[in-house]
Simulated assay, not measured.
Amino acid sequence: MRASRQLIAAFVSLLAAAPAVVQAQAQAGEWVSYRDAYRAMVQFEKYGGPKNLLQSQLQVQSRDHAGLGEGAQLTLTGKTTQLNLPLDALGRTVFPLTKAAYDENAALVLNRKGMPFVLRPQVTIAPRADGQYDAADLRTACAQALGFVRYVDASQRARQCVGVRFVFPRKGSAETAGARLRHAEGGEQALPVTSGAAFTGDPDEGFPIVTWRFATAPGRAQVVTYNAPLAIVPIFE
């Protein structure tokens, strides 16, 4: 139960950009109980508020911040369950909610022998195939994410949505990793690209980042990305 409470708390601390991040640690450095991860991840499924613009994933990180390396994946292993869960460039995977794995208390195993790791739930804004994001939709999506955070922890009610952070792959030029702001009257401006971490508490800060704050364009506008972002992270303050 302690590990499941830690995972649920991680939803709040990560999305609300709290300075301290609580994580579920692998047992003996090599596996995590499926039930513990399930209890945290099912919170998003149970949430009855608007969430159509959001997605929920499970993130894996090495506990010593050394990085997972290419080809890392989780394997869900139980008496009758065997499922490979490939990880994206941010160490995330779609978490399967299965009764059989829960009943068997299957293990989540990382294919990095002896590497201690942690699991962190991540809720982000779902990307669009056309790369065009209306400002109104981004504000709505951020509000949906904040609603979920408040559902998990009522103490976060003082937080407000202030913007979004587009996270791009490391490979590519600043232009291909960037985005531009398209105003309602037709004018466009490039948004600055910086380097940073995808999520609060991540040790890897080498990702190209475009941060867009809602206050910079209070009217109608669009954010247009040059290429698909790895993640769109809501920003709360």
Rank of each mutant, 00 (worst) to 15 (best):
D202N: 01
D202C: 07
P203L: 13
P203S: 15
P203M: 13
D204R: 15
E205Y: 15
E205V: 13
E205G: 14
E205W: 14
E205S: 08
G206V: 00
G206Q: 07
G206N: 01
G206K: 03
F207Q: 02
F207L: 07
F207H: 02
F207K: 03
P208H: 05
P208T: 00
P208F: 04
P208I: 00
P208V: 02
P208W: 03
P208G: 05
I209N: 08
I209V: 10
I209Q: 05
I209P: 08
T211M: 10
T211I: 10
T211C: 06
T211Q: 09
T211D: 06
R213I: 04
R213P: 09
R213M: 05
R213N: 04
F214C: 00
F214R: 01
F214T: 05
F214M: 07
A215W: 03
A215F: 09
T216R: 09
T216G: 07
T216K: 15
T216L: 15
T216N: 11
T216C: 04
A217R: 00
A217C: 03
A217M: 00
G219V: 10
G219F: 02
R220W: 12
R220H: 06
A221G: 10
A221C: 09
A221E: 11
A221T: 14
Q222V: 04
Q222R: 14
Q222H: 06
V223R: 14
V223K: 06
V223F: 13
V223P: 15
T225D: 00
T225I: 08
Y226W: 14
Y226V: 15
Y226E: 12
Y226A: 14
N227G: 08
A228I: 10
A228D: 06
A228C: 09
A228P: 04
A228G: 07
P229F: 05
P229H: 11
P229N: 05
L230D: 07
L230R: 07
L230I: 05
L230S: 03
L230T: 02
L230P: 10
A231G: 12
A231S: 00
A231F: 05
A231M: 07
I232N: 11
I232W: 02
I232L: 13
I232D: 06
I232C: 06
I232Y: 12
I232K: 12
V233A: 08
V233N: 06
V233M: 10
V233H: 08
V233D: 03
V233C: 09
V233F: 15
V233P: 02
P234V: 11
P234L: 10
P234G: 11
P234K: 15
I235K: 08
F236C: 05
F236G: 01
E237V: 11
E237G: 08
